[in-house]
């Protein structure tokens, strides 16, 4: 019998992983090196990395194209207000609990959303997000339609507060990417990729398709909720119209599609590009949106698998190797 040897990561992958780890450590030192204005801005980048990574897990691996992930972003943000302002919990410690709350919200919503498929699923998730927003805007202690402020962090020195927020955001971003990477490497991760490619064939091969999709939906809800909690800490206010805005979904789709759907690196590339464009152009008003649209169209036409997927993704080089090579 032939010996069966399977390898998971080549040299490039080991180098890539080490580089990613080093980069995370370097970023962790930023509060000591740069001003709090810069770290405050970088939190936005980490939030983008998280929501893009989570949306990619959902759509790129689970085949669940949702336009309603803002439900979890908003729920995470509001959960920080509820836990900290009303529950008396430290605002920074409330972040993991807020993520968990968003994940719990995903359980009942998944049963509603999973009754629909394809385009109907997409619209259905949007409707659910609107419902979550409308319900939240009815809750008196949470400020109804005008929102609420995170008053419990006013005792912190601003620089310290921004540094804590920054570290938390970095940890959530690194944690999200790592969690998705480790998940995709497992047996379940391989099955998710199979589901995305052909759900019927996956079922015929014994894959528990529904269970795998629900798992992904819950993880994405939790991760997006963590991002929402960070948004709350960074902006210190929440408003239903902003944290539950469908614009978040547009951001997620833009970053993932432009970066490269179905790859772990792609959403990070997309988040970097989106963050860069936003920093460089958001003062330009409508011109910024036109350029954003043009970039999206150009990438879809010229590099349909996204910037990462159409370039490095076509080689065997990978920062986060997930494949199996039979020797």
């Amino acid at each position: 019998m032939t010996a069966v040897v399977v390898t998971r990561a080549g040299t490039a992958g080991r180098v890539g992983l080490s580089a990613a780890g080093l980069l995370a450590l370097l970023l962790a030192a930023a509060p000591y090196l740069v001003t709090s204005d810069i770290t405050h801005t970088l939190v936005d980048l980490f939030v983008f990395v998280v929501i893009a990574t989570m949306w990619n897990l959902l759509a790129g691996y689970g085949g669940l194209v949702s336009v309603g992930q803002q439900a979890y972003l908003g729920a995470g943000a509001y959960a920080v207000i509820a836990l900290s302002v009303h529950g008396g919990i430290n605002a920074f410690l409330a972040v993991p609990l807020a993520a968990l709350a968003a994940g719990l919200l995903a359980v009942p919503l998944s049963f509603l959303a999973f009754r629909l498929h394809g385009g109907y699923f997409a619209i259905g998730t949007w409707v659910l997000a609107e419902v979550v927003k409308l319900v939240t805007a009815q809750i008196g202690p949470l400020g109804k339609g005008s929102g609420a402020s995170l008053t419990t962090v006013s005792g912190y020195d601003p620089d310290i507060r921004v540094a804590y927020t920054y570290w938390l955001a970095l940890a959530v971003a690194a944690g999200s990417v790592t969690a998705v990477y480790l998940l995709i490497r497992t047996r379940t991760g391989l099955q998710l990729t199979a589901i995305r490619d052909d759900g019927i064939a996956a079922e015929a091969a014994g894959v528990r398709v529904r269970r795998a999709k629900r798992l992904v939906y819950l993880i994405a809800g939790t991760g997006t909720g963590a991002a929402g909690a960070i948004v709350c800490l960074n902006t210190l206010t929440v408003q239903p119209e902003s944290v539950f805005s469908v614009q978040w979904s547009a951001y997620m789709i833009f970053m993932v599609v432009v970066g490269g759907i179905g790859t772990i690196e792609g959403p990070i590339v997309g988040a970097l590009l989106f963050f860069g464009l936003q920093q460089a152009l958001s003062a330009q008003g409508p011109v910024y949106l036109i350029i954003l649209g043009a970039v999206g169209v150009a990438v879809v036409l010229l590099a349909p698998r996204g910037l990462w997927g159409s370039t490095v993704g076509r080689t065997s080089i990978s920062v986060f190797p997930v494949g199996h090579t039979l020797r």
């Binding site: 990729t193 199979a194 052909d198 090579t325």
Partner: peptide, 21 residues
């Protein structure tokens, strides 16, 4: 109905892992 983005080996591996447990 191949899993187009997976390799041939991974296609079989999905089946061995899921269907074969």
């Amino acid at each position: 109905r191949p899993f187009t983005d997976l390799t041939v080996f991974e296609n079989a591996l999905v089946a061995a892992g899921a269907g074969g447990g």
